[in-house]
C-alpha cells in the first residue's frame, strides 16, 4: 500500500515538475527559502499524532512556535516541544531557528530564492533512537541551505543541512557507538489547486504538497527516507490549516515513531511591529 502511494506520489511530483509549470511553497514538513514579510509575526501550533512502535501506542506531540520577520532578509522562529510520552503531558525541549535570504530573483508570478538556515536546540529527553531529530529528541545544532523555485501555481524546493547532536544533559547521553552527526536532505513540491482565478482575499486557497525527507548518519552510514503528502487550506489570506501524513519509505536505522499525522494551525499578523 505504502509502496503504491510512494510510486504514485513520485509520478505526481515528476508530472508536476515536468508538465504544465504553472504553488505554492508554504511547505508543511520543511521550510521554503522564502521569508515571511518584514515586521510580521506568525503564530503556529503543530499537533502530531505519531504511532510509537516501542509502546504500540499513539503519541501526541505539540509544537508551539512564534515566527518573526525581522527584516526582508532575516526571519527567526522560537519553538517548544511537548509530548504525552510516558503517560503524562510534559515539556521536553525547545529551540531557535533563523533563516537568512542570500539571493532572490523575481519575475511576475515566479521567483528563485536561496537561503541559509541555522537551528539551535535544547532537549532533555532520553535518547531512544538513532535518528537525529533536533525538534523532538536531540540537543544540538543544524546548518544548511535551501533553494526554492516558484513558477506560477507550482513550487519546488530542495534543502540540505548538517546536524550535530550532543548529549541531552549529563543524564541522557548519546549511547556509545551511535552517530552524533547527520546530513539531512529534502525535496518538496506544492501546487495551488484552488482558486483557479483570484478575485479577493477572502477566497479559500487549497494547496497540495508532497515532500521527500531523508537523513544520512555520517559515522555509521545508515539512512532513512520518508514521504509526506499534505493538504493545505489558507483562509482569508491569513490563516493556514495544514493536514499531513508522514510515513517511512525506507530505513536501516532504529526509529521509534516515524509514522504519523500532523495537523497545524497558523495565523499571520501583518505589520505587527
Amino acid at each position: 500500500m505504502k509502496k503504491a502511494i510512494a510510486v504514485i506520489g513520485i509520478q505526481v511530483m515528476l508530472g508536476w515538475v515536468c508538465g504544465d509549470l504553472a504553488a505554492q511553497e508554504l511547505f508543511v514538513f520543511t521550510e521554503p527559502a522564502s521569508n515571511m514579510p518584514a515586521k510580521s509575526l506568525g503564530l503556529r501550533a503543530s499537533n502530531w499524532l505519531m504511532y510509537d512502535k516501542s509502546t504500540s501506542s499513539l503519541n501526541y506531540q505539540l509544537l508551539p512556535e512564534i515566527m518573526w520577520g525581522a527584516n526582508k532578509n532575516l526571519m527567526i522562529h522560537l519553538d517548544g516541544f511537548f509530548t504525552n510520552q510516558n503517560g503524562h503531558f510534559h515539556a521536553v525541549g525547545g529551540g531557535g531557528y533563523a533563516k537568512y535570504r542570500l539571493y532572490a530573483a523575481d519575475g511576475v508570478n515566479k521567483h528563485f530564492r536561496l537561503a541559509a538556515f541555522g537551528r539551535l536546540s535544547l532537549n532533555n529527553s532520553e535518547i531512544f533512537q538513532q535518528e537525529i531529530d533536533l525538534t523532538r529528541n536531540n540537543t544540538g545544532y543544524a546548518l544548511g541551505l535551501i533553494g526554492t523555485q516558484l513558477l506560477h501555481k507550482q513550487a519546488i524546493s530542495a534543502a540540505i543541512g548538517f546536524n550535530q547532536a550532543y548529549n541531552n544533559g549529563s543524564q541522557n547521553k548519546i549511547p556509545p557507538g551511535q552517530a552524533d552527526q547527520a546530513l539531512n536532505a529534502s525535496i518538496s513540491t506544492g501546487r495551488l489547486i484552488f482558486p483557479q482565478k483570484y478575485t479577493n482575499y477572502k477566497q479559500t486557497n487549497l494547496n497540495l504538497m508532497l515532500e521527500l525527507i531523508g537523513q544520512h548518519l555520517l559515522a555509521t552510514h545508515e539512512n532513512f527516507l520518508d514521504m509526506a503528502p499534505a493538504i493545505q487550506f489558507i483562509f482569508h489570506s491569513q490563516t493556514r490549516l495544514d493536514i499531513g501524513y508522514k510515513f517511512q519509505l525506507y530505513s536501516d536505522m532504529q526509529r521509534v515513531a516515524p509514522n504519523g499525522v500532523m495537523i497545524r494551525l497558523e495565523y499571520l499578523l501583518f505589520n505587527a511591529f
Binding site: 504553488a23 505554492q24 508554504l26 515571511m36 514579510p37 510580521s40 532572490a104 523575481d106 519575475g107 511576475v108 508570478n109 515566479k110 521567483h111 516558484l150 506560477h152 501555481k153 495551488l192 483570484y198 482575499y201 477566497q203 486557497n205 489558507i234 489570506s237 491569513q238 493556514r240 499571520l268 501583518f270 505589520n271
Partner: peptide, 18 residues
C-alpha cells in the same frame, strides 16, 4: 504598481497591508 515574485493571495495580502 505591479509586484513580482509571488502568486499566492497570502503574499499579495502582505504587500497590500504594507
Amino acid at each position: 504598481i505591479q509586484a513580482s515574485g509571488l502568486t499566492c493571495s497570502m503574499c499579495s495580502r502582505a504587500i497590500y497591508k504594507a
